[in-house]
Simulated scan of single mutants.
Amino acid sequence: MAPVESYSVGEADTSAVPAGSSADFWAEHVCRNQGTLQFCFSDAPTFRGSMSIQGDADYLLIDVCSDDIVYTRTRKDIRRDDDAGLRLAVPTTGVLGLRQDDRAVRVRPGQAAVVTKTRPADFRQPRGTRARVLSMPAGALPLDPGSGPAVIDLELGLGPVVAGMVGGLVEQRAALDGQGFAAACDMIVELLGLCLRPTGNAATTLGAIDIAVRDFVRRNAAQPELTPAVIAHSLGWSLRQIQLALHTTGTTPSRLIRTERLARAHRLLRRGSADRTIADIAHASGFRSLSVFGAAFKARYGCTPHEVRTGGR
């Protein structure tokens, strides 16, 4: 993959390797980009597949077509790489099969599905099916625990906008830079959150509270005064309601605020001006204490802010 600032583009094609080794090549390449998975090839010795790849530290988008294959993520795989990210699958030809939480769905063109990597899942791509798969950070979208893949209609409302943006990123991958790719992916995530928003009477459910809180935190995380109590007061719900809503999706108000602030700081470190100090970035992301910021950043990303700034990670 050839780096363009923090953004990389590349390709993988089994036609580039000797016959008989294509399955091993494919498995190694997919695991390098998608984390630990198991593979079931319909015919491993003759397997053929190709993909384009583009991504940065937060997002990875692939456009893939191959012979019949089933990707499986087991509990052992989850323990091995601890990847809690999300995957958005958008078929452009053919029908994908996804299974998670004992719920199986068939996703056709005009639809998309979101799964989490924190629970076992199966992903079947029949021969000739082409799909675009966007990897997103953990917690980017609210998903109901145990409800299986979240299916999104891409033919109504904001759906066609999402589909058009994902397709545009693939088509323009060589002309993009890191800042443009990241900004577009951030917007896709925002639109997906709106697509998943409950409608009608569901506005009083914990799921709706979860979405509203995440939206509010995303917009206001940079404010040092933001606290769980401020969120509750601003949105008109009790702190207990907010805690219950976020508990169903595996987080807490304080953790959500900290995660959003760290993500903002991470983006600023990679994309911001080199003249901007790390202390300034910490304060601009909502942290009052530089030492607290440094410790939280190292715990979240496994490296220091300075290492991210200098490209060490």
Rank of each mutant, 00 (worst) to 15 (best):
A2R: 13
A2V: 12
S8T: 12
D13T: 07
S15W: 06
Q34L: 14
F39W: 09
S42I: 09
S50T: 15
T74Y: 07
D77N: 15
T92L: 10
R99W: 01
Q100V: 01
G110D: 09
R119M: 12
Q125S: 15
G128S: 06
T129A: 11
R130C: 09
L134V: 08
P137K: 02
A138C: 08
G139L: 04
P149W: 01
P149Y: 05
V151A: 10
I152N: 03
D153A: 09
D153F: 04
L158D: 08
G164R: 07
G168F: 00
C185K: 00
C185S: 11
E190V: 09
L191M: 10
G193K: 00
C195T: 09
N201S: 13
A208T: 03
D210Q: 14
D215W: 01
D215K: 06
A222W: 01
P224C: 07
L226V: 00
L235C: 09
R240P: 01
R240I: 13
Q243V: 12
A245V: 05
A245D: 01
R255L: 13
R258Y: 00
T259I: 01
L262K: 01
R267V: 05
R267H: 11
R270Y: 05
G272P: 05
G272T: 03
R276P: 01
A279I: 07
A282Q: 02
G286V: 01
R288D: 14
S289T: 05
S289G: 02
F297H: 06
G302L: 06
E307H: 10
R313H: 12
